[in-house]
Amino acid sequence: MDKFDQHIVALLVANARMAVAAIAREVNLSRSAVSERIRNLEQKGVIRGYHARLGAAPAQVRAYMELHYLVHRCEQHAARLRNIPEVRQAFTISGDTDIMLYVEAATMARLEEVRSHIERLPDIKTVKTHIILSELIHNPG
């Protein structure tokens, strides 16, 4: 990637809906040259898609949950967790925690319901919840 490609990628990361004409003006290339560069970046896998980044609803509660199991079969437990729509991500991590969940719920009451449901799943030893108070850094790149 040369300096033009890097500049184009940076502009698209900042605004994936930026018009090719605007990018062309910004990088000082023709629209056709910018279109060709974007097409090449897509074909090489440098640009793998264009996504909408959704903000959390004002009343939304976000949390991480540490799950500790009596029997350590993470894949089996993950299959049960996939059925809970508020569970957005699940990770195996190093240390004592068996699975770390990222959960988004509409309200605190709903988060409590989700936690209660998870606590009743087979082989759960403990669930430790960490409510997200604020986001200091968001770097999707």
Rank of each mutant, 00 (worst) to 15 (best):
K44A: 15
V103H: 00
P122Q: 13
H130P: 08
M65L: 14
E113S: 14
A57W: 08
A109T: 10
A56Y: 10
L29D: 06
A33Q: 06
S134E: 12
H72W: 00
V46A: 05
E26Q: 05
S30R: 04
I23Q: 01
L111H: 03
R88T: 14
Y102H: 06
V46I: 14
R17S: 15
V114P: 02
F4C: 02
T92V: 09
Y50R: 03
D98I: 08
A21M: 09
H138Y: 07
A19F: 04
A10W: 07
E119T: 12
I84R: 00
T97G: 04
F4V: 08
L12V: 08
L54W: 03
R115P: 03
G49H: 02
I84K: 01
V87L: 04
V103D: 02
I23Y: 00
E75Q: 14
V127C: 15
F91H: 10
M108G: 14
C74T: 15
R73A: 05
L29A: 13
I38A: 08
R115L: 15
A90P: 03
A59Q: 07
V87H: 02
D98N: 11
G55L: 15
P85A: 06
N139E: 14
L67G: 07
A33L: 02
A90H: 03
H68Y: 13
G49W: 01
V127L: 13
Q76V: 08
R80Y: 07
E113T: 10
S35L: 11
D2G: 10
Y102S: 08
A21W: 06
L29Q: 11
V20F: 08
R80I: 08
R73N: 12
A63W: 10
A78S: 13
D98W: 06
D123R: 12
A105I: 10
S35H: 10
V20N: 08
I47N: 09
I124Q: 05
K128P: 01
E75P: 13
R82N: 12
P85S: 06
P58K: 02
R110K: 03
S35T: 11
R53E: 05
L121C: 09
A109H: 01
Q76E: 11
R39P: 07
L111Q: 04
L111C: 10
A16H: 15
R110A: 09
V9E: 03
A22M: 05
R53S: 04
V34Q: 01
T107A: 08
L54N: 02
L67Q: 06
A106D: 14
A63K: 08
N28P: 07
D5K: 06
R39S: 11
P122C: 04
E104V: 07
M65S: 03
I23S: 01
I23W: 02
S30A: 06
A16N: 15
R88M: 13
G49T: 10
P58Y: 08
V127H: 00
N28Q: 14
H77L: 09
A33M: 03
T92P: 01
T92N: 06
E75M: 11
